[in-house]
Simulated assay, not measured.
Amino acid sequence: MIALGIEGTAWSLSVGVVDEENVIVLENDPYIPKEGGIHPREASQHHSEKLPSLLSRVFEKVDKNSIDIVAFSQGPGMGPCLRVVATAARLLAVKLKKPLVGVNHCLAHVEVGRWKTGAKNPVSLYVSGGNSQVIARRGKRYRVFGETLDIGIGNALDKLARHMGLRHPGGPKIEELAKKGKNYHFMPYVVKGMDFSFSGMVTAAQKLYDSGVAREDVAFSFQETAFAMLTEVTERALAYLDLDEVLLVGGVAANRRLQEMLRKMCEDRGAKFYVPPRELVGDNGAMIAYTGLLMYRHGYQTPIEKSYVRPDFRIEDVEVNWD
Score class of each variant (00 low, 15 high):
residue 1 M to G: 04
residue 2 I to M: 15
residue 2 I to S: 13
residue 4 L to N: 03
residue 7 E to N: 02
residue 8 G to N: 06
residue 10 A to Y: 04
residue 10 A to S: 01
residue 19 D to L: 11
residue 21 E to M: 13
residue 27 E to N: 05
residue 32 I to N: 00
residue 39 H to I: 12
residue 46 H to K: 07
residue 47 H to I: 13
residue 48 S to F: 07
residue 51 L to R: 04
residue 54 L to M: 12
residue 56 S to N: 11
residue 56 S to A: 14
residue 58 V to C: 09
residue 64 K to L: 00
residue 65 N to A: 04
residue 66 S to C: 13
residue 70 V to K: 00
residue 76 P to N: 00
residue 80 P to E: 00
residue 80 P to G: 01
residue 81 C to E: 08
residue 82 L to P: 00
residue 82 L to F: 11
residue 83 R to V: 11
residue 85 V to A: 12
residue 85 V to E: 09
residue 85 V to G: 04
residue 86 A to F: 12
residue 86 A to K: 09
residue 87 T to E: 04
residue 96 L to S: 05
residue 96 L to I: 03
residue 99 P to K: 03
residue 101 V to I: 07
residue 101 V to F: 03
residue 102 G to Y: 07
residue 103 V to N: 00
residue 103 V to F: 03
residue 103 V to C: 10
residue 104 N to P: 03
residue 110 V to G: 06
residue 112 V to R: 04
residue 112 V to E: 06
residue 114 R to P: 02
residue 116 K to G: 01
residue 119 A to S: 13
residue 138 R to F: 14
residue 141 R to Y: 01
residue 141 R to K: 05
residue 142 Y to T: 02
residue 143 R to Q: 14
residue 143 R to V: 15
residue 144 V to I: 15
residue 149 L to A: 07
residue 150 D to R: 09
residue 150 D to H: 10
residue 151 I to A: 02
residue 157 L to Q: 00
residue 157 L to F: 07
residue 158 D to F: 14
residue 162 R to M: 03
residue 169 P to G: 08
residue 172 P to F: 08
residue 173 K to A: 15
residue 179 K to F: 10
residue 180 K to I: 14
residue 185 H to P: 14
residue 187 M to K: 02
residue 187 M to A: 04
residue 195 D to K: 11
residue 196 F to G: 09
residue 196 F to V: 09
residue 198 F to P: 15
residue 201 M to D: 01
residue 201 M to W: 01
residue 202 V to A: 02
residue 203 T to S: 12
residue 203 T to W: 05
residue 205 A to C: 10
residue 212 G to K: 09
residue 213 V to M: 07
residue 217 D to Y: 02
residue 217 D to V: 01
residue 219 A to P: 14
residue 220 F to Y: 04
residue 223 Q to V: 03
residue 224 E to V: 13
residue 226 A to Y: 05
residue 227 F to Q: 03
residue 229 M to W: 10
residue 231 T to R: 03
residue 232 E to I: 12
residue 233 V to Y: 01
residue 238 L to R: 03
residue 240 Y to K: 08
residue 242 D to M: 07
residue 242 D to W: 01
residue 243 L to H: 01
residue 244 D to P: 11
residue 244 D to N: 01
residue 245 E to L: 13
residue 247 L to T: 09
residue 253 A to F: 08
residue 259 Q to G: 15
residue 264 K to V: 11
residue 269 R to V: 15
residue 269 R to G: 10
residue 269 R to N: 11
residue 276 P to C: 10
residue 277 P to W: 13
residue 290 Y to I: 04
residue 292 G to R: 05
residue 297 R to L: 13
residue 301 Q to I: 09
residue 301 Q to L: 08
residue 301 Q to N: 08
residue 302 T to F: 10
residue 304 I to K: 00
residue 304 I to R: 00
residue 307 S to F: 13
residue 310 R to G: 09
residue 311 P to T: 15
residue 315 I to N: 00
residue 317 D to S: 15
residue 319 E to A: 14
residue 322 W to G: 07
